[in-house]
Computed example of a mutant assay.
Amino acid sequence: MSSPDSVSLHARGIVELAGERPHTLIFYVLTMVCVATTLIPDGSRGDLSSQRRTYWSGTVFAAACAFIAALPNVRTGLIVAGLCVFCLVLPAYFRTQLIKIGGRVIAFESAEYLPDTADGKDPYTRRASAAKVWWLSIFCVGIGAINLLAYVIDHEPVLYGLLGLFLLTVPAVVSGLNDGMHRQRIARGQYLQFGIVTVISAGIFTVCYLLARSVGLRMRRPTQ
């Protein structure tokens, strides 16, 4: 719990901010209000079109208020506004069907069940395609590679190295076992993404994936 001294210090800081830059405090509060409005569609019974209008109106106004709150520092305002948009787009992509561009819904999970292919079920779930999962893997492996390089080259704390190693090995083992046990092709046919991941990870991800997949193939025989 915060001590009385720290609470008093925070209170004085807010008072000073209100006196020196009142617009920052005002628009910070407005940003939080706008972000709160994006929660309205969650669980709402309204039609999807109205949910989209509510969510993205809140997102745009939140970004605008965050930008104004940072003025006169334009660079900081752009960074904060961009971060605000990113933090609201991310859950919308993974949890909802609210992103719609040019008549096309963009979401991690399809609104409809995905069809099976002739050589097995390519989707990792009935609503998440293999293509989306493997494009997402490029982002995760990239973060892992950056952290590992920061540890090896820049001598950052060991936590960076451990996080990087985790992201380059554990997801590879899990997906390799999964694909092997379900008798799937390598990367479920997503060879472009698999090649990019191989380059980014300097082959670490690929070796772990292929080894795990070979184990998975021996763990379960194909159904007759």
Rank of each mutant, 00 (worst) to 15 (best):
I200E: 11
L211E: 10
N178F: 14
A128W: 15
G120L: 04
F27R: 10
G176C: 04
A36W: 15
A18T: 12
T198Y: 07
V152F: 14
Q190M: 13
I196T: 12
R75I: 04
S49Y: 10
R213Y: 03
L168I: 04
Q193R: 05
A187Y: 02
D116N: 09
G142M: 03
V105G: 04
V85E: 06
I146N: 09
A172K: 00
C84T: 14
T24K: 12
R213N: 05
R188E: 01
V89G: 05
A70H: 04
P4Q: 09
H155W: 02
Q184E: 05
V15Q: 13
Y191E: 04
R53N: 05
L78M: 14
A212M: 08
A145V: 00
C208D: 08
V197F: 08
Y209H: 10
T198H: 10
G58V: 09
T223N: 09
L9N: 12
T117P: 04
T169H: 05
V29I: 15
D154Y: 07
S3H: 01
A128I: 15
F86R: 07
G77T: 12
V60C: 12
Q51T: 02
H23Q: 13
R21M: 03
A187D: 08
C84P: 00
R220N: 10
G180E: 03
F139K: 10
S3N: 01
R188Y: 01
S2N: 11
P115V: 02
S201L: 01
D5N: 13
